[in-house]
Design a protein around this nucleic acid. Sequence first.
DNA 1: GCTTCTATCTTTACACTGTAAAGTTTGAGG
DNA 2: CCTCAAACTTTACAGTGTAAAGATAGAAGC
Lengths: 193, 193
Amino acid sequence: MAEKNQHHHGNLRPALIDAGIEVLKAEGLSALSLRKVAAIAGVSHAAPAHHFDGKNGLLLAIAAEGFRTFIRYMEESRAVAGPAPQAKLLGICHGYLSFAKDHDALFQLIFSPDIKNNTDTELTDAAQRAFGVLADTCALFEPSPSHPQGNEMMVWSLVHGFATLRRFHQTVPPTSNQPIQFSDILPRLTPRK
Amino acid sequence: MAEKNQHHHGNLRPALIDAGIEVLKAEGLSALSLRKVAAIAGVSHAAPAHHFDGKNGLLLAIAAEGFRTFIRYMEESRAVAGPAPQAKLLGICHGYLSFAKDHDALFQLIFSPDIKNNTDTELTDAAQRAFGVLADTCALFEPSPSHPQGNEMMVWSLVHGFATLRRFHQTVPPTSNQPIQFSDILPRLTPRK
DNA sequence: GCTTCTATCTTTACACTGTAAAGTTTGAGG
DNA sequence: CCTCAAACTTTACAGTGTAAAGATAGAAGC
């Protein structure tokens, strides 16, 4: 490894992003601080400022990386699903939900309104590619009569809300104690012929 | 008013909660601090500690208050809707979405996983009552064949995801620029006879 | 080979945050 | 009138983001 204990770290930027993801996994979003990731990477606390424009910049970079693994989750889950359109759609959603479960804090971050994005193309590109994965799968079905993107928004809202509320129910327990599967609430769409 | 400029404020607890909601409206969740609400209420920065168990306690109290106005939004929106079950359901959802739009930061707070709830009955009661408003309206329809609470969870996930993604699209703009209405993605349920 | 220069990182400093502990005031009860 | 307890203040401390100035090392030019 490029373990130079000198002044120049070598590839500090990705190291800081990795450290950030590490903190997210271990202690959650609220525990993520510039000084902590700097300490993990073995540099001074002010070093991150030269690679990211403040804390928000680090969050943007981590979020972009998060979106990329988010995409991977959906694509891999779709790949192992059956060939039928409905199976592929459910596969995407299961990937969505698996990501939310496996990367709790990262999921919180990438959809957090706290990260102010001012034309960060790296983030918006990754986010729109993530939406594209879902849109492509929705294109296998007849479009919604009410709106050209009706199916996308319906499925996207449904799975996102489901994931978010499942997180919420860890804090405020639901009234019912019968666990519900996502496939129970996903409507059947009519495949395109 | 009970404007005593002495040592004892009189009713500091609700004043701090109001100050917190005021900050949320003006500057957002990230700008909410104990010291700031204390300053607004005109007390020393450590005063809140005697009424709430730390910052999380204040957040819990604000969130409980937030859930109560959240309930009011849904009930009032249902009241002005038509008598048909589907109209009432759509009314609830519009109240849901109006609240999310009018009280952006408060909406973020009440569904934030950062507020750690350790058997705070005030919050859980309000939250479960909010869910009850939606459940009551869903009871007007035939139950989902797949799960007794299938309709509730479907509608709840749908509207919550829609609200969240609308917030998200303020940061990352959507690929399509044709605005979509919630009524376009809400499925028609079959009313109970 | 030597100098210069620039990106990278460090040091120092400051305002702000939450929290704990000890001190002060005020109003109520004996 | 005295005591006392609740409400609030004061003081202190560790942690945070950020800005500015200083140090270092590798590259670029000659």
